[in-house]
Design a protein around this nucleic acid. Structure first.
Length: 310
DNA sequence: AAAATGGGCAACCGCTATTCA
DNA sequence: ATGAATAGCGGTTGCCCATTT
């Protein structure tokens, strides 16, 4: 393909540029486009997205190609349900860093910033809306920190116990995920992994295109999986041998929850809500046996609304 | 059965930061 | 030092699908 517009007047260039823009495709990617992009990157590597788009014969912007690659086609993109541990991490990290989605995503191998952002907006903000409080309000943050997160931790521990008692078929997926979660890479935090929460606690199966839909919970976490994602199984980037970033899962710091999270005196002893009452109420919740993500039933909401003075 | 509604997600947009010639 | 190109980020939009009316 020639370099359009080069050497002509600015007006000509502008016209040509507009023609190019009109020629550009937008909207959902087709299988052919995905294949073209994957094949090109397999042979030439990524980067220089604008020229890559042209060279690959894609009528897309470089930006669009980059986004499609990073959020969807990369071999190490992990799709499917957001696990309990991932939910806990997202809540914890968001409380630390706010809407720093890409930074949070770095701590969840295989998850993209877009996915985490969508999770936050669709699930977490939904609960804030139900509680009639702002997602950034202290009230809601306290609710997350002192109710939701401890509850998640309990559920993880409970799941861990049940997994321990579960025979071979389950342990395979648990083992696979152990590598992922024990090696979560969190920088600039003082998180310390206590009692091996990650990995051993997995109840949801590790994602495969085959099982992704079947692992949906009642709240239907992340079950929408484009068929194209399966293509990534047959794909490799030069020099990566299906492991594009060997350091990606390497640990630089163990991850988990600081003592303040596991030590009641540090974790619960703050002002604001009646957290002692909440704790007691938690015990009931922990035993209610609901699904992994459906935390707020009618009674929960009533209790919370009382606590929040709504 | 059809229309309306809402949720979830992929993709786009606008902006800033970084790199490079 | 500077400006263009590129990369990356967070917010927003619009489509698809399931559920409700």
């Amino acid at each position: 393909m020639d370099v359009k517009g080069r050497g002509f007047s600015s007006i000509t260039t502008t016209i040509q540029s507009e023609e190019d823009m009109a020629d550009l495709r937008r909207g959902p990617w087709t299988v052919d486009e995905d294949l073209s992009l994957m094949n090109y990157i397999a042979n030439h590597g990524e980067g220089r997205w604008n020229s890559l788009a042209v060279s690959a014969g894609l009528k897309r912007t470089g930006k669009s190609c980059r986004l499609r690659w990073l959020n969807y086609l990369r071999p190490d993109v992990r799709r499917g349900n957001i696990t309990l541990e991932e939910q806990l991490l997202i809540l914890e990290l968001h409380s630390r860093w706010g809407n720093r989605w890409s930074k949070i995503a770095q701590c969840l191998p295989g998850r993209t910033d877009n996915e985490i952002k969508n999770y936050w907006r669709t699930r977490v903000q939904k609960h804030a809306k139900q509680l009639k409080c702002d997602v950034n309000s202290k009230q809601f943050k306290d609710t997350m920190r002192y109710l939701w997160m401890p509850r998640l931790m309990e559920r993880i521990q409970a799941a861990s116990a049940s997994v321990t008692a579960t025979p071979a078929t389950t342990s395979a997926s648990v083992t696979a995920n152990t590598n992922t979660y024990q090696n979560l890479n969190i920088n600039n935090t003082n998180m310390v992994l206590s009692h091996n929460d990650f990995g051993s606690a997995h109840v949801t199966q590790s994602y495969t295109p085959e099982n992704s839909a079947s692992t949906a919970t009642s709240d239907s976490f992340g079950t929408q999986v484009s068929p194209v994602s399966e293509l990534t199984e047959f794909y490799s980037v030069p020099g990566n041998n299906n492991n594009p970033n060997p350091d990606y899962f390497q640990t630089s710091a163990q991850v988990g929850y600081s003592d303040s999270l596991t030590n009641p005196s540090g974790f619960y002893g703050t002002q604001g809500l009646d957290f002692q009452a909440m704790e007691q109420n938690n015990q009931q919740w922990f035993n209610c046996g609901d699904t992994s993500d459906n935390f707020w039933n009618v009674e929960d909401m009533f209790f919370l609304q009382q606590q929040l003075g709504i």
